[in-house]
Design a protein around this nucleic acid. Structure first.
Lengths: 239, 239
DNA sequence: CCAAAAGTGTTTAGCGTACACCCATGT
DNA sequence: ACATGGGTGTACGCTAAACACTTTTGG
């Protein structure tokens, strides 16, 4: 038998009868401080489905891939169309393609994203609602599984990458940065050790300004733009 | 404006005129010792394209996603059909979907895989050929970029995961395991320190048997099946 | 003055690296 | 016997963690 590349120009005709469609969804995280809570927690927006399948259930924001746009662009577009949000960080998470994950055959390219709390326009839209990541309802499709995986990736990546900055404004105190880490990791960090670690990492630039208001003023820091925020997949890899 | 999930049951009609197709490809690595070389090196099989686009160029093994199979199954199937290989480790790498990566619109779900050298049946197939990963020719589509990314992921993952075992037989000496690491990382490792690290990791079980043949016999080890080989994405995550 | 957060210093434990050294086998 | 890889011991340097301590503000 002589084997050749099966990537023929056109797939078999029978497959074209009910083609597999490509959707793009995004798990977008932010931090918020629940009223009466001491600590911040991870939250994400969900969109109520207005059609079958799973009409009425909450689902990840997303939509169909357009023929004229790349995957990243599709993620940004569908996220904006469904929620009005524009993430400060966006990275591909995983492609989900189990046969039974939807009544029709759908392959979903899922992204995960971060957004700063100050960039969230509180849209008075009853079909978009923010949920605490730790206590989600039953979602449409396999979206609970997807969110769990995105959370795992977030917690994992915060350990070796600078992504926590995607949740903060341009200038921030070390306490604010530490709060981000604590919310994502779900545990308290030693302020003294945290300071040294982040100072020695070379990713922060101290400014001359201070955050005042209570107790001793805290110095404000900026990102060091020379350092990559995080690996964003193969596409912006320089070589 | 009231936003809703754009995941309507059917995509727009104009998009169906020239539908986006889903392909699956695999970067499958093994180790081989080139004749006359002291060290092993990473190698991968490529398939010669027998049709346009890029007829005559070498490409990653792959094929179209079938409507009745999941993504993982499609990767295994297309890999077997094009090369006859069955990997010992298989993990999703990335979804590539740039508009201009192929003349027609194709989203490729790319996997990366490992196979043990002893599992490679040397097929006398002129359309499948093994290449040294460090010196590839110009490949079809964006496949050079994809291989580079897969190599980066391999090198990265070998640092915190047990995937190196996917390139070895059931029983192996520490020198053989070390050789795998050295080939992937591209640098020599201290035998003494390597031994301690891997022994303390708890992933190896010493057997009573030894590899003899030259100099002092070396103890053979087995995998500890209780320890996960590596994270294989969200699908076999237990919670 | 006091509370509380900002910021500094010090000690300890663990781990990776480098490297000296002994052990066991084939030739 | 000796060369060679298998295997052990040890010292050094870096970093994370724990925690005592000083500084600076608001009230």
């Amino acid at each position: 038998m002589t084997r050749t590349s099966t990537l023929s120009p056109v797939p078999p005709a029978d497959a074209a009868a009910e083609p597999t469609r490509v959707a793009v969804s995004t798990v977008i995280f932010t931090l918020r401080r629940l009223p009466g809570s001491e600590t911040a927690s991870v939250a994400l927006p969900l969109v109520r489905r207005t059609r079958d399948p799973h009409e009425g259930l909450w689902a990840l924001p997303g939509g169909w891939l357009d023929a004229t746009e790349g995957l990243d662009a599709a993620a940004s577009r569908t996220l904006a169309e469904t929620t009005g949000l524009a993430p400060s960080y966006l990275e591909q998470l995983y492609a989900f393609g189990a046969v039974d994950r939807s009544p029709s055959r759908v392959v979903s390219i899922v992204y995960w994203a971060l957004i700063r709390p100050d960039e969230i326009a509180d849209a008075s839209d009853e079909n978009v609602q923010w949920f605490d990541a730790a206590s989600l309802p039953g979602l449409a499709f396999d979206h609970n599984q997807i969110v769990d995986y995105a959370l795992w990736r977030l917690r994992n990546k915060v350990g070796y990458s600078r992504i926590a900055h995607g949740l903060l404004a341009d200038e921030f105190t070390l306490a604010e940065l530490r709060e981000v880490y604590e919310a994502i990791l779900g545990r308290r960090l030693d302020p003294a050790n945290f300071r040294r670690q982040v100072e020695n990492s070379g990713t922060l630039i101290p400014t001359d300004r201070f955050r005042t208001g209570s107790h001793r003023p805290a110095r404000l820091y900026r990102y060091n733009q020379d350092v990559e925020l995080a690996d964003r997949g193969p596409l912006d890899r320089r070589q």
